[in-house]
């Protein structure tokens, strides 16, 4: 089933289920400040319409939840920011990475009629949206972060970042985003990821058990929370270097208290520019599992560019 169908069903779900009033009445109560009735208050309280949660969701759906427009709208007022954080960022995440979101939230697969949207997510929807769409760069190599077009997140990659005893955790990690560094022979690969249910993960239990101190100088680029260095904690398995095709030891990664991962490594520059790191490095003991679900999280070219980027 397509995403379009899923979205449609969700938006219409409330209003067509008998209590059609929920569309009108419910939204009226959402209207900022004006605790007065619905339609009647319209004329006096101009343009409350755009502040309506349903209307906003529909408007942003029509521009495929364009992240730039969303960032802008959240700066307009507290009310708009609240709606963005509760609904719009979530819908953006679902539109870009439906299976990943359902896997992270434990919610039933998107696309099945009647399923309510997932409620909360650790670290918040804005942080997850940024994680899907923003490469963290590499501060240590003076590589700035940047907005990304298409990123691929996978659980297989995630597994290679987990030590043997933490393999039960579910972690999505992106392919490394490669950056040339002036004056350096090698490229920097920046990657990012997110744990499911980090609070109850083995990784967190290990970090807490080993009394690993939180970093003082690094913060999570996605939610701003404090982070642990997995290198300092001694929790980086060899499979991580192999997976990335990185030089051994020249890798760092951090996990924040909300379970967002970010890091970078030095990659041997390949002769062919489109070389595939996985092919050389990760193939051996880390073969693809049959049930692995790769997930593209992308800004989805077509309609996105068409409506929003200009």
């Amino acid at each position: 089933m397509s995403e379009g169908a899923r979205n449609t069903r969700r938006f219409f779900g409330a209003s067509s289920s008998g209590a059609a009033g929920s569309g009108g009445a419910g939204s009226a109560s959402n209207r900022d400040g004006s605790g007065i009735g619905a339609a009647a208050s319209r004329s006096s309280d101009v343009n409350t319409g755009i502040l309506d949660e349903n209307v906003l969701a529909l408007v942003f759906r029509s521009i495929n939840f364009d992240p730039k427009a969303l960032c802008t709208v959240a700066r307009v007022s507290r009310r708009l920011r609240a709606v963005a954080e509760r609904v719009l960022w979530r819908e953006l995440c679902i539109s870009r990475a439906p299976r990943m979101v359902s896997s992270l939230t434990g919610a039933p697969a998107a696309g099945v009629a009647g399923n309510p949207p997932p409620g909360r997510i650790v670290g918040g929807w804005p942080a997850l949206a940024k994680l899907l769409l923003f490469c963290c760069g590499a501060a240590s190599a003076s590589v700035p972060g940047h907005f990304t077009g298409v990123s691929r997140f996978s659980k297989t990659s995630g597994r290679s970042f987990l030590t043997r005893r933490c393999r039960g955790d579910l972690l999505y990690v992106s392919d490394p985003c490669e950056h040339a560094v002036p004056g350096a022979d090698d490229d920097v690969g920046a990657y990012r990821g997110v744990f499911r249910g980090f609070m109850r993960s083995r990784t967190r239990a290990c970090l807490v058990g080993r009394r690993v101190a939180l970093e003082t100088r690094v913060r999570c680029p996605y939610c701003g929370a404090r982070v642990w260095s997995m290198v300092a904690a001694g929790l980086v398995p060899r499979s991580a270097w192999k997976r990335l095709g990185a030089y051994e030891g020249r890798l760092e990664y951090y996990v924040c208290v909300s379970g967002h991962l970010h890091g970078n490594c030095w990659l041997a520059r390949l002769t062919s520019s489109d070389g595939d790191h996985d092919g050389g490095g990760g193939g051996g003991d880390d073969s693809e599992d049959e049930d692995d679900e790769e997930e593209d999280a992308s800004t989805e070219g077509g309609s996105d560019d068409g409506h929003a980027a200009n």
Partner: peptide, 24 residues
Amino acid sequence: FDLVEAANFLGMERLLDVTCHKIS
């Protein structure tokens, strides 16, 4: 805005798209 809500209430896909596109 009233028309968006009416279209949403009545499940009018196309009218929703057209009105929301206008707002966007």
